[in-house]
């Protein structure tokens, strides 16, 4: 069971109040892009064993989407941040680096 804090309404609640929306920070390839790019955008996901950036929605609460960095192996939550962010905030990246020195970075 994950305990998550929504950055939009500040509520700390358990996992069942939220829904997972898959991997975050995907770059969209739409009409006019190459087949390889489109296929990668549609289907290729990192699915790591370790640090993962995800989209979540506070479905039963304020209804807002947000992004979160967590560890798929230890279930540790490194931090949540606004959905209107193109890459993980520096403080969350620094926190991950401190907890998991072997982490290769966000890219």
């Amino acid at each position: 069971m994950l305990l998550l804090t929504c950055p939009c309404c500040g509520v700390s609640a358990e996992e069942t109040e939220f829904t997972n929306g898959g991997e975050a920070h995907l770059k969209r390839f739409g009409p006019g892009s190459s087949d390889a790019d489109y296929e990668a955008y549609m289907f290729a996901r990192k699915n790591p064993r370790g640090v993962h950036f995800e989209r979540w929605r506070h479905a039963y609460g304020c209804g807002k989407w947000f992004l979160m960095a967590r560890d798929t192996m230890t279930l540790e939550v490194y931090g949540a941040y606004k959905a209107q962010t193109t890459e993980p905030p520096a403080d969350i990246q620094a926190k991950i680096k401190a907890r998991r020195p072997e982490w290769e970075g966000y890219k």
């Binding site: 309404c9 509520v11 609640a13 358990e14 069942t16 109040e17 039963y60 609460g61 304020c62």
Partner: peptide, 17 residues
């Protein structure tokens, strides 16, 4: 409801399930 009511103040609101 999956809410901690221990410090739920008068005039406070929570949306949940």
């Amino acid at each position: 409801m999956p809410i901690d009511f221990a410090d739920f103040a008068v005039g406070e609101l929570r949306r949940s399930r």
